[in-house]
């Protein structure tokens, strides 16, 4: 079982994840249309690049945009959540140990207590995201089961990883569940709103080009995101 899950199943999951995301980006770019989108993507390119960079940078830095600054609470929550989401699994010792064993390379790693702490922080952030969805009328109206399910799929590897690491009840059981949940998450990403992992960049670049090329970018310093 373990051999299968960390072998062929893992390869399949990562394959779907990477290929799926690449396909999403290709479909996105191919579906752009200068006349229908009303942006000359291939003319005035320097303005487009400038606009794109400004748009991405402003929104990827904590408090980098007027929008982020106008809502410090959710901004903090968002960045903590995503930091945990991306940083923890990438630099986890156990993951890198497996990487080394199976693929022959590994990344720089963080200590286990650090990983533990980050995992717990990520889980707590997720709880707050749920509470926010329930508490705020403007978020409640947008929320459906889909949002909860995807949030669940996203944090399940964190919960199960934590339980396995602390060997709560049955280590082996949790480890299997962990790996399965991790693979489910990877597979879901290209097919759901989680595709924003790459489409965030596509969308921000596109809008940045729109403002950079057409909507005022050639006049003055550009949009103050």
């Amino acid at each position: 079982m373990y051999e299968f899950l960390t072998g062929p199943a893992a390869i399949a999951a990562f394959g779907i994840f990477f290929i799926g995301l690449i396909v999403r980006v290709i479909i996105y770019i191919r579906g752009l249309h200068w006349q229908m989108d009303r942006v000359t993507y291939t003319v005035n390119v320097s303005y487009g690049i400038k606009g794109a960079i400004r748009s991405v940078i402003a929104w990827i830095l904590p408090f980098g945009s007027v929008g982020w600054r106008s809502k410090p609470g959710i901004t903090l929550l968002f960045f903590i959540f995503h930091f945990g989401l991306l940083f923890t699994p990438l630099f986890l010792q156990a993951h890198n140990f497996l990487l080394k064993e199976r693929w022959g390379f590994s990344l720089w790693t963080i200590s286990d207590p650090t990983a533990d702490l980050l995992t717990i922080i990520t889980l707590v952030a997720a709880v707050f995201l749920v509470l926010r969805r329930i508490a705020l009328a403007e978020v409640r109206i947008l929320t459906t089961a889909y949002d909860y399910i995807l949030l669940g799929i996203t944090v399940a590897p964190f919960l199960t990883g934590l339980l396995a690491f602390h060997q709560v009840w049955d280590y082996h059981f949790w480890l299997m569940v962990h790996i399965i949940s991790g693979e489910i998450m990877l597979i879901c990403i290209p097919f759901t709103k989680l595709s924003h992992v790459v489409l965030f960049f596509c969308s921000r670049i596109q809008l940045g080009m729109d403002f950079g090329i057409k909507r005022g970018g050639m006049k003055g310093k550009g949009f103050a995101w």
Partner: peptide
């Protein structure tokens, strides 16, 4: 096309636009 489709799909339903 992709721009509008993507917007409809990836909206995080976060309410920051409210």
């Amino acid at each position: 096309k992709s721009r509008l489709r993507t917007w409809l799909e990836i909206c995080a339903h976060c309410g920051m636009c409210a």
